[in-house]
């Protein structure tokens, strides 16, 4: 069985307002970013599943902007399902984002015409 184009499918889901990632029913592992084949195990029965949207900040840096532009947080978020992804943590001052902070996914407008996933503190949701 051949996967539908993973990158195109991921952004299609986002455009429809759904944050979907991949999971292999045979091994139970969750996969992000979307691939043709699961890393390490090589499982190729990947399906699209909606994750909880909850996660934890694994690492964070604050990109300093020239004022008056605001500083921006660039974080790696570990989803509760396991995979990590780069994102922004919004709804909070960039320099208040801490490693270990619980966050929840939200879909917003990204660069170009694509929608992207950002996070905000779970408490604020």
């Amino acid at each position: 069985m051949t996967q539908a184009p993973p990158t195109a499918t991921y952004f299609q889901h986002l455009a429809e307002g759904r944050f979907m990632i991949q999971r292999s029913p045979s091994t139970g592992e969750w996969v992000f970013y979307p691939r043709m084949v699961a890393p390490v195990s090589g499982a190729n029965d990947l399906e699209w599943v909606e994750p909880s949207g909850l996660g934890t900040v694994y690492a964070v840096t604050v990109k300093r902007a020239k004022p008056p532009a605001p500083n921006v947080s660039i974080a790696i978020v570990e989803l509760d399902e396991g995979p990590r992804m780069m994102s922004h943590v919004q709804g909070i001052e960039a320099d208040q984002v801490r490693i270990g902070m619980r966050v929840r996914a939200r879909i917003v407008d990204g660069l170009d015409d694509n929608k992207i996933v950002v996070f905000e503190p779970e408490a604020a949701a």
Binding site: T2, Q3, A4, P5, P6, T7, A8, R35, M36, V37, G42, N44
Partner: peptide
């Protein structure tokens, strides 16, 4: 894999599938 036309796939996806 995908010889000819493989619409929607990125180059990396095509290479990864051939590799698999």
């Amino acid at each position: 894999f995908g010889c000819g036309e493989a619409p929607g796939y990125t180059a990396i996806e095509l290479a990864a599938e051939a590799g698999r």
